[in-house]
Amino acid sequence: MIDLRINKLAVSVEDGTTVAAAILAGGIGHFRSSTIGSPRGPLCGIGVCFECRVTIDGVKLQRSCNVQARDGMEVETDD
């Protein structure tokens, strides 16, 4: 299992889980706020739509569907 934190809350997921999946598994659908403030979450699942962007380990605007969850990761959504 992999232990990471999403919006400061501890989450455990199986090996091979993407960050997007970890966030959705935690019941969060609102990954980012669009330019007009509307809630958005993943659409394409394969790294082309950029709707699943979140902050990972302090680096903003990362596509969470393309990144594997790792131990100790700090993930922040706009929710």
Partner: peptide, 21 residues
């Protein structure tokens, strides 16, 4: 269509393969 939990068809499959329950 921009609401959270509206996904692509392949998109949802890819997400589930990545661990979405």
């Amino acid at each position: 269509w921009t609401l959270p939990n509206v996904f692509g068809v392949g998109g949802l499959q890819a997400l589930v393969k990545g661990g979405v329950p």
